[in-house]
Simulated assay, not measured.
Amino acid sequence: MLSRVADTTYWMSRYLERVENYARFMDVNFNLSLELHPDVSEQWKPLVQTTGDWELYESLHGEVDKKKVIYFLGFDSNNANSIFSCIRNARENARAIRPEITKDVWEKVNGLYYKVKDGIEKKVWEKKDPRKFFIEVKESCQLLAGIYDSTISRTEGWHFGKLGQLIERADKTSRVLDVKYHMLLPDVKSVGTPTDLVQWSALLKSVSAYDMYRKKYGKLNPSSICEFLIFDKNFPRAIMNCVEHAHESLQVVSDKDDEQLNKADKQMGIFKAHLEYTDVAEVLNQGLHEFLDDTQIKLNNISTAIYETFFSSENILSQQSHAQ
């Protein structure tokens, strides 16, 4: 498979996964803001911090304001990670690999792009309740993911797409959990209070995990929530589940006989083993923030290794010289 096509497929899927995550975060956070006291900074600043774009937001918009946050995360073209920027990039990537995807996938990506553009024209961020828009974006992404899985052959292209989706998903789960644990509570006295439980509930909903968590554990408990979102092998947004399936796809596209081409596979395998031989008690003793920060570093390193292994021009030239 051409490295250019693999790279484009990988990033198309990452961008689409990011769009869905942002749309879900916005919907859940808006609901949360209605249930708790109206401290705008406390409710909306953590949402920007979840995405890792707080410094950019502060430089562009200054003080925390609900409408400004919704605009920044949803529609701001100056934010490379906004829903609009991501769906625009996903659409351009989809256009570049149009022969590799189905008509159904292309039409859904294209339709989602125009839905978001319509949201800009209608200034959704100015509305009193913009949840309907973000729910529609989230559901469009979920429908698109289903169409992609049900209409694309399980070739290398599909596996590169899954790699992008799953690495992005694991990263966002780790970020949401990290922000809740360290930033949302005003002080340790709030632990176990109704406010604390509402926030943990919102966290689970922000990664669509509330129902499956309650089915497995029943009561809301911070330790159990951490265990579920990090180590559960059956829940599709748990970090462990994402890493396991990403490793499976990486093994399919890796050349086991080439040391360089096996670099990304090795890093993913080491990270998977690290998760398998760690439990939630060790994580909490070590420090949840430290563990999640290390997880994000490892995911970034794996993504870099994937680029160097499959997509970089140096590697393409190396492959060509070996083939001659």
Rank of each mutant, 00 (worst) to 15 (best):
M1N: 04
M1G: 10
L2H: 07
S3V: 00
V5S: 14
V5Q: 14
A6E: 13
T8N: 12
W11I: 03
L16T: 00
R18A: 01
E20D: 11
E20A: 04
A23C: 05
L32C: 03
P38V: 02
Q43K: 11
Q49R: 12
T50C: 11
T50D: 02
D53W: 06
L60D: 07
H61D: 03
G62L: 07
E63C: 06
K66T: 12
I70Q: 03
I70S: 02
F72L: 06
F72Y: 11
N78C: 10
N78S: 13
N79C: 06
A80K: 13
N81F: 01
F84R: 13
F84Y: 15
F84C: 06
S85H: 08
R88G: 01
N93V: 04
R98T: 00
R98Y: 08
P99N: 01
T102I: 09
K103S: 14
K103D: 14
D104S: 15
W106L: 03
K108R: 11
G111F: 07
K115D: 09
D118Q: 15
I120N: 08
K122A: 12
K122S: 15
V124H: 00
P130V: 05
P130M: 10
R131N: 06
R131H: 06
F133Q: 12
E136Q: 11
V137S: 01
K138N: 10
E139A: 11
E139D: 15
L144V: 00
G146I: 13
G146C: 05
S150V: 00
I152D: 03
R154H: 08
T155S: 14
W158V: 05
Q165R: 15
L166P: 04
E168K: 01
R169Y: 03
T173S: 14
V176E: 00
L177I: 12
D178S: 07
K180S: 01
Y181A: 09
V191A: 15
G192L: 02
T193K: 07
T195H: 10
D196G: 03
Q199V: 04
S201I: 00
L204G: 01
S208R: 08
R214E: 11
R214M: 07
R214G: 02
K215P: 04
K216F: 02
K216L: 10
Y217D: 07
S223C: 06
S224H: 14
E227F: 04
E227P: 04
L229G: 09
F231Y: 11
D232L: 01
D232S: 15
F235P: 06
R237F: 11
A238D: 03
A238W: 03
C242I: 06
A246P: 08
E248G: 01
S249N: 06
L250N: 15
S254V: 01
S254M: 03
D255T: 10
D255I: 05
K256G: 12
D258M: 09
D258V: 07
D258C: 09
Q260E: 15
N262I: 07
D265G: 04
D265Y: 10
M268E: 04
F271Y: 13
H274N: 08
L275A: 04
E282G: 08
H289E: 05
L292H: 09
T295R: 05
T295F: 08
I297L: 12
L299H: 13
L299S: 07
N300I: 05
S303W: 01
Y307C: 02
Y307L: 06
S313F: 09
S313A: 11
N315G: 02
I316E: 13
A323W: 12
Q324M: 13
